[in-house]
Design a protein around this nucleic acid. Structure first.
Lengths: 253, 253
DNA sequence: TGTGGAATACCATGATTAGGGTATGGCCGA
DNA sequence: TCGGCCATACCCTAATCATGGTATTCCACA
């Protein structure tokens, strides 16, 4: 079965050139439309009734083809192996492992496929692990009524359907980065330009002589700068200075 | 005017301990409710008609008090100064600056206040800057119809109302972290436990003698491990080894 | 069951480098 | 004019690097 399907940003991005996609489409003046096979979906959920309910939603949606409805990690991996799927919708708590492993498995096989998590878990570890594994969507099961089709449309269009409670975890994580960076900014000792040059050389393992040559200064001047760096970083030798500098973000790694 | 208001996780978190938080799931016993004044809101939006529309929504909502409806950054900062507000709803593009500055300003004055961005901007820089400045919500203006009240409820309950297109930016950023970490995992040389001990000591600036003492091994053994570390990290001295180790994420800073 | 390899540990020495101290002078902005 | 930054110079001690070795344990593979 073949259907007309609007090009998603994701798809356009994934094949190489947009022109390839556009050229293969002869259905009309709108080159935003192309002939696309059904979206191949695998659904994983260990709870039978819930799985049935979700499966029915996907199944009744004419734009997708439900390749498999799995209850375990093993089944899911088999389903991913068996078929080049476009989307995995998975629970996290599975009897034989975590849905995160399924997402990783999918990412390795088909990096262009998408994954949506549907789970009751909202703790930071689960959420971040799922995102880092490659999930693009994360819906909380306790939501009054998950609009699964809306979520699928979102994710295939390059957006991320995420419950607001889950989103808070992401926001907190990212804002922490900002805060710590900003805090360190204040506590960061001010090194002079020359000292930064020297610091870089130290990190790269240069000796006094190499440092002097590369900066075109006297060999005897180098250790003076180095000692000033030690004082400012409260270090007493090179490796400690590099460690402190890295910790304070003075050196970009 | 005084109203009964459920404790938000945010508020619970600020008052004291996490236990309060866990118990505060909506319909619990009476001590989950407290007497609270109206939510004090400042709204900033440079486009007049849009501002009027949003202001009316907030104004007509009985649970909030609209302290000010501003068109510029300056007005916003003045409004924040004038009143201990609970929530800032702001656009990013303002005639005299960025709404991000308003968020930063608010974070400095009242760190417990929340901020929601409503903007047409969806680029990574704007989104991440807003989040790092302290925004908890980010709604895209092109959304068909923003449910502002729902967003306010979300954010005051410790959730993060975020448009799915914006969420994708956050997801991408966080999953990149995961990927680079995972990639480095592969390229990362495998140091033995002993070598990691030694590496730590090096980073802290220990000498051979201190290293030997702290690990209870012979002074002569230390340089052997160190040379092995150099070989594995392709370094030729201590500082370079620390630098490489930090770069590869072998050392948590 | 044996055997190779890796990791760990120990020993020794000469050449090189780093670290600490102290001193002097030029330059520039407050 | 003073202080901070940069640069230069010398000397001495301590530490490191690159070499040589040898021995033990443990694990994987044949």
């Amino acid at each position: 079965m073949i259907r007309v399907w609007p090009i998603s940003p994701r798809q356009a991005c994934l094949t190489n050139k947009r022109s390839t996609l556009a050229d293969s489409d002869e259905t009309g003046p709108e080159d935003n439309f192309m002939v696309t096979p059904l979206l191949k979906v695998v659904l994983t959920e260990d709870d039978g009734p819930v799985r049935e309910r979700l499966a029915r939603i996907v199944h009744e949606w004419p734009e997708a083809e439900l390749c498999a409805a799995c209850a375990t990690l093993e089944e899911t991996q088999a389903a991913i192996e068996a078929d080049d799927i476009d989307l995995l919708i998975t629970d996290l708590k599975l009897p034989d492992g975590s849905g995160i492993e399924a997402i990783r498995f999918l990412a390795r096989r088909r990096s262009e496929a998408e994954a949506i998590v549907i789970s009751v878990l909202a703790d930071e570890r689960s959420v971040l692990a799922a995102i880092e594994a490659g999930a693009s969507g994360y819906l909380l099961k306790d939501a009054d009524s998950i609009d699964l089709i809306e979520a699928i449309r979102d994710v295939m269009a390059g957006r991320s359907p995420i419950s607001s409670r889950i989103a808070r975890v992401l926001v907190r994580r990212l804002s922490e980065n900002g805060n710590t960076a900003a805090e360190n900014e204040g506590a960061r000792p001010a090194l002079t330009e020359r000292e930064m040059d020297i610091l870089w050389g130290i990190a790269k393992g240069f000796t006094y002589g190499e440092l002097a040559d590369s900066l075109a200064i006297s060999r005897q001047t180098v250790p003076v700068h180095i000692r000033n760096i030690y004082r400012k970083l409260q270090a007493s030798n090179r490796s400690e200075a590099v460690f402190e500098a890295a910790r304070l973000g003075l050196i970009r790694l």
